[in-house]
Design a protein around this nucleic acid. Sequence first.
DNA 1: GCGTCAGGTATACGGTTGTATACCTTAATG
DNA 2: CATTAAGGTATACAACCGTATACCTGACGC
Lengths: 214, 214
Amino acid sequence: MNVMTGGKLKLVQAALKLATETRSLTSLGLRELAREAGLNPNTFYRHFKNLDDLGLQVLGYIAAEMKTGVRQLRMVAESSEQAATTTVTFVYNYFLENPAATTVAVRELYGSSPLLRRALANQLDTSAREMAEDLMQQGLIPRRLPEQTVREISHMTIRYILFRAMDYIEKPDQRDAIRAETERFINRQFRGATLDQLSNEEFEALTAALEQNG
Amino acid sequence: MNVMTGGKLKLVQAALKLATETRSLTSLGLRELAREAGLNPNTFYRHFKNLDDLGLQVLGYIAAEMKTGVRQLRMVAESSEQAATTTVTFVYNYFLENPAATTVAVRELYGSSPLLRRALANQLDTSAREMAEDLMQQGLIPRRLPEQTVREISHMTIRYILFRAMDYIEKPDQRDAIRAETERFINRQFRGATLDQLSNEEFEALTAALEQNG
DNA sequence: GCGTCAGGTATACGGTTGTATACCTTAATG
DNA sequence: CATTAAGGTATACAACCGTATACCTGACGC
């Protein structure tokens, strides 16, 4: 039912390509799309009501692509031991294999179309919730962290990785550094969160003790 | 010399307004700008070579605005005691008072113009460096954190706050929550970083001990 | 075998766009 | 006072845009 074929698929893929290479999704032209897809301009109206409609359907296409990617990702993560490193690697690899979708998501998350923004934010929230579930199920997280804290950190991390993925895609020579930096980010968030209840004095006492014990 | 007056200023402000309300900076039209500014379309060419040139000058205008804002910010921060909370508050207030510039910055940081992206990234790097200097000077940071770690966290934080500022601007009822969340973000990063050298075993031993001592 | 309908095409129209050229006003400069 | 330059305007043009209407083709159900 929602599998796209023929001209419609061509138009959506053309939109992804053009949105990545030249402009934002919301500023694409109908004739421009048809030209890229090798179709007559009016064919557009056979599949979409207007350009906003196209934007939403492109987002749906991206979401569907992402969902299969995330499912694969979860299976790999479950069969792994040191899941922090491998998870980060696989998430970035996933973005790397879907550069157009990633770019569009980044550009439209705070873009000018409220409709697209809302849809994308919901998508990210879902991903964050799933990520939090996975992390807790796998026991990757200090056990006594409140669920809400885990969700909050997952939410921040998803957004952080999404934006960082743009650099990851475009700067191959920095990929190792970006992965390492992201792991530090995650570890610091979760480790730091275990100290949430400590006052400044307690925390300073702790670090002083740590420094002594070496 | 670089103070803008008359028609040029009108055009730049029109660009900021339109980029915020309707579209991305790089997709604005020349006649659209002139209409908004109440000028003849061809007046544009008296001040700018083309639309890319306009984009760069708008960025310069934003950077100048930001610089005075940050200077005020630093003065306030120096005279304050609990600088973490007040700094976050003032940074968000600053973005709140410059919504157009903030929106443009967010949209173009990963937008389609490499020129604008590079300029914005440099601007953010400078801000991160200054933030790191300030934080270390004020002694707000666990003393033995390596300078590079402080810079890295500052870099992450600047970006995090910039994007979060979009929600801060648009959702007044969530502002308290966003500020609190940002403080947690910063505290967790810096506190977590003090534990960077600990192995997983050492860290778990630490948390177990903390749990006992209450 | 005939109607129906989805998908693709051709042509056309009014409006907008970026840009070129030429003209006008104002202020400063010699 | 004449010249020059900056800033703003008017008109014009070719290109492109979104959209409307009409036409063509093949596959399908009855």
